[in-house]
């Protein structure tokens, strides 16, 4: 049973962690398009997979995951953009949960852009 007491325990556990994160630099920002076009094309599972995997892979301290509206390339949705300090923006198109996992593993963790899924703008 999920109780408020359990939530309280999570709060106590997280207090230290959040403080640590605020002092470290978030170097990577992953942005998922979440407008009507993105949602209809399947962006919801892509976003939820990324949020879950960033945590499972222990990347929460350097990676933030945010949502945005229509990027203007509706036919290529779901779209995921990766912003990293000092590097060019990378745009991944026609994403799904499996592709998102690969991007996290190879690009975010491994530093190598998964060019099979990118689009040149």
């Amino acid at each position: 049973m999920k109780t408020l007491a359990e939530l309280e325990a999570i709060r106590e556990r997280m207090r230290g962690k959040v403080a640590v994160r605020e002092t470290s630099d978030n170097t990577t920002r992953i942005v998922v398009g979440m407008a009507t076009c993105g949602i209809a094309a399947g962006a919801r599972p892509v976003l939820n997979t990324i949020v879950e995997e960033v945590s499972n892979m222990g990347l929460s301290e350097t990676v933030t995951v945010t949502q945005t509206g229509c990027i203007g390339l509706c036919q290529y949705e779901p779209i995921v953009e990766v912003y990293q300090t000092g590097k060019e923006k990378v745009t991944y198109v026609k994403m799904d949960s499996e592709k998102a996992k690969k991007v996290l593993e190879e690009h975010i963790k491994g530093g190598k852009v998964v060019t099979d899924y990118t689009i040149k703008l």
């Binding site: 408020l4 939530l7 309280e8 709060r11 997280m14 959040v18 945590s55």
Partner: peptide, 20 residues
Amino acid sequence: ELREVLGEEISLGEFEILEW
């Protein structure tokens, strides 16, 4: 109700909270 327990420092957007 959750915010009352979590206070201001822990965001509802934290993965652990979303999982709860």
